[in-house]
Design a protein around this nucleic acid. Structure first.
Lengths: 198, 198, 198, 198
DNA sequence: CAGTAAACGAGACGGTACGTCGTGTCTTCTG
DNA sequence: CAGAAGACACGACGTACCGTCTCGTTTACTG
């Protein structure tokens, strides 16, 4: 019988007492691909490890919980999403929301956030991750949109957080119930309410 | 909170070719208790069956998926929650939101909804359950609040659904990120934005 | 929605305080068919009841254990198998064994006996059924073959049971290990040893 | 019978990327004990896992089917059974058969073989295991007895397999119908027939 | 330049839960 | 009162992941 010389994934050995960037990249790519292809339903550390050709302990070493890995995937993707500055609150929000939904639809990020939220409902550490490492950090660009609007006098400074929460909630409901198809008129109408424009 | 009347040792046989209400009650009580005590994290069909002294197949017969059982728990509890009619949108929304958060905090319903949403992120049937059997039905009382306000001229009829979605989103974010402690001022401020009152 | 009027199996009601022969026939036919088609592996009271359009309790009433039903199937079939009387032990045994293997291969009886034996290994009542209701009764025709041979002086009367046991064992091993394809030479050679012919 | 050294509370972790002999021993001991105490009727992978303090997947990893585990138990025990060489076929067979029945009675091996045969009647893989991994291998010592007899001229070489089959059948019938109590005269008489001695 | 330290893949481990199947008992309703 | 129907508690099935652990190997950094 002929022996198949099969070394496609090529073994990544250790490179000494420090994190191997190749491994990190392979894991991230596997996680990204899995989320993009199968959504959160097919996402498991086990499968990520298989795809990445990595050991589970290696994954747990660098991303101690599933939430950590999901956040990492989201963050890596989010670089592609820039908040606009069009000089007017409703236009900024509408533009950004449309972009955000497209961003969620077109890659692993939407599924990653779904998973992050789902995970938070059953683990404590997941909840902590969602609040402290996702909500607290990733809202900065949108908060800035509201802050600029406050600077222009469109809204009161004290209202920034309240209106921001409304914006987040609107997006979450659509994401979590699977309705983030493009719908500019809906988004625009809703942003007007959030912005408090007549 | 009511005390569960426990009768674990007694075996509930079949009562013929129809659903045994005692079994149904035992399963519901077990599910309720489990959610109230441990939240969605400790919720499993296996444990519900154990607590109820029921067979797993019995549970799967009547509640084919976890989502079905969660919805059943939520619905049973929701009878205790009545939407107010105070004659003014912001007051209605504020009152109802405060009541809703208390309702979520004080029993299994909050955990049930968390679970329902989490479940929807990984199964398809869960998503369908969330959309078709929860969202489509349980929002009727709040929709009625908005509809009455539209009748009074407080908002335009065409805006009902948009503002309703904002209200849902606000509540979901708070629930899913574990922040539904009582906060009347926050709620009141937010309801004003949703209602579009100056 | 149109209602499908589906009554193919036709409902057999009770015919009063006695066994309904239609039901018995339906159950027997279902058991027979199941064994013939799928072997013992696919045989379950549940499936028999489904096929027969009968209630499980009805089956348990008349055939209190799986073994009882298997024996009933075997007995019903065995009427088709007649022990020969060719005037010579080896010829009688060879002929009968060939017939028996064909009988086992061609209908549900082989699978039924397999099931009967398998069942006996895990239940006590099954073992009792095998010994007292199968072994004790169904060997009479073959015992008669040996007895006639003893009458003719081919073997000693005291050897009848010993040689009978050997014959049973030989057939069981072949049946239970799935090797009852036709093999007249093998059978004839073996029967000679059992008969003690030089 | 040896006493099982119980260490249930202690957790056996993995010892790296290879089979843990402690776990293997614990599973084997549990299977052995279960068969010896309750026979095949009480034998289930679930219960073995419980007794061994092992996870079910661990058992399935190393013994993919129930048959595999039963064979492993039988093989481990069978080391204690040596085929005699007394220089004469009937004496060899009688001695070995008496030993074999005692061996079956006094430990888990009898129940293991019962289970192996029962299992084969309903699964295909079980049948394959019985034929290829049990029958084909474990008969070697007895086949050697016959072969030696053929070497001495007691029987013809061509008869070895036929007579071996008779011996196997005799033992199976007694085992499967629960009649392996000591009965030296019966065994001796039967061995004479198998050996073809006058 | 040897020795140490840490990361790596691999994969086994004890678990928990999954959803399905079959068992034998029970009860009600129908004819 | 037999029979169909089917619910019921039980428990086993075989699978999927979980998160932890230990291995043996492979570097790179240290003294």
């Amino acid at each position: 019988m002929a022996t198949v010389t099969e070394t496609p994934p090529r073994r990544r050995a250790s490179i000494g007492s420090r994190r191997n960037p190749e491994t990190e990249a392979a894991v991230m790519a596997a996680a990204r691909g899995l989320l993009a292809e199968q959504g959160y339903g097919g996402f498991s550390i086990e499968e990520v490890a298989r795809r990445a050709g990595a050991g589970k302990p290696t994954i747990y070493r660098w991303w101690p919980s599933k939430s950590d890995l999901l956040i990492a995937v989201y963050d890596a993707e989010a670089a592609a999403l820039r908040a606009p500055d069009l000089g007017e609150l409703v236009r900024d929000l509408s533009r950004h929301t449309i972009d955000l939904w497209r961003f969620w639809r077109s890659g692993p990020a939407g599924a990653a956030l779904c998973g992050l939220i789902a995970d938070a409902q059953g683990s404590g550490t997941g909840l902590e991750a969602l609040r402290e490492r996702f909500l607290a950090e990733r809202l900065a660009p949108v908060r800035a949109i509201f802050a600029r609007a406050a600077g222009r006098g469109e809204i009161k400074p004290a209202e920034v957080e309240d209106r921001l929460a409304l914006w987040v909630g609107f997006n979450w409901v659509r994401l979590l119930s699977g309705r983030i198809e493009d719908d500019a008129p809906l988004i625009r109408r809703t942003m007007k309410v959030i912005a408090g424009s007549t």
